[in-house]
């Protein structure tokens, strides 16, 4: 029963959504209700995750675990934002500007570090793997696109070269199309597996 009940709920919900899309005129209202249930459940799940995160970090602090200072900062920031949001309201311009003033530089700095980390990892990748087909192809492709990114080659007014550049710049598009086709096929397959009960992501 523990396994059958979730299976029945999942399959019936999926079937109902599919049928609702095909018979939109008559079932759209009921479909909206089901989608609202999903929204509410996802919001509650977010609250559960928040509570779990808070309890975990409080546990780290009380037990004096190594690096608990970071947990202390996380709990303090969470409580401060929560209390300020309750008191000032989430529409308060000062509150929004204050939060944005903290978030934007932090997240931008993290994103900027990605470039540094990627450069470092590319060197490590080459030194650990040595020279083989994978590393050489990676290096050549990265080198070509970095050169193209400079825009210097495109400035050369030579028709055959422009065609070559265009062909090279089209390579990522080929990969993106293949990726999208693969994603679509995977989604269809996964949906079918969930419908027939072969895939149970909700299971333990």
């Amino acid at each position: 029963m523990k396994k059958i009940l979730p299976l029945i709920v999942a399959i019936s919900s999926a079937l109902f959504v599919i049928v609702g899309i095909f018979f939109k005129e008559s079932l759209s209202g009921w479909l909206s209700v089901v989608l609202n249930w999903a929204i509410v459940l996802s919001s509650v799940a977010l609250l559960v995750v928040l509570a779990r995160l808070l309890i975990t970090h409080i546990g780290y602090i009380t037990s004096g675990r190594q690096g608990f200072i970071y947990s202390l900062v996380a709990v303090f920031a969470f409580l401060f934002t929560l209390i300020a949001g309750f008191l000032a309201g989430i529409d308060n311009p000062a509150y929004l500007k204050w939060i944005a003033g903290i978030l934007r530089p932090l997240e931008t700095a993290l994103l900027g570090l990605v470039a540094i980390v990627m450069a470092s990892m590319s060197i490590k990748f080459l030194r650990e793997r040595g020279w083989n087909a994978l590393t050489i192809s990676f290096t050549i492709s990265a080198f070509i696109f970095l050169i193209l990114g400079l825009g210097l080659v495109q400035a050369i007014d030579y028709a055959p070269l422009k065609q070559v550049i265009r062909a090279i710049e089209g390579l990522p598009m080929i990969g993106a199309r293949g990726l999208l086709i693969g994603v679509a096929l995977g989604a269809i397959l996964m949906g079918m597996r969930v419908l027939i009960g072969a895939e149970r992501p909700y299971d333990d």
Binding site: R127, R129, W131
Partner: peptide, 13 residues
């Protein structure tokens, strides 16, 4: 990339 490719390739292999 050039440095990583040329300098001591495979030393940490």
């Amino acid at each position: 990339l050039i440095l990583g490719f040329l300098l001591r390739p495979g030393s940490d292999e």
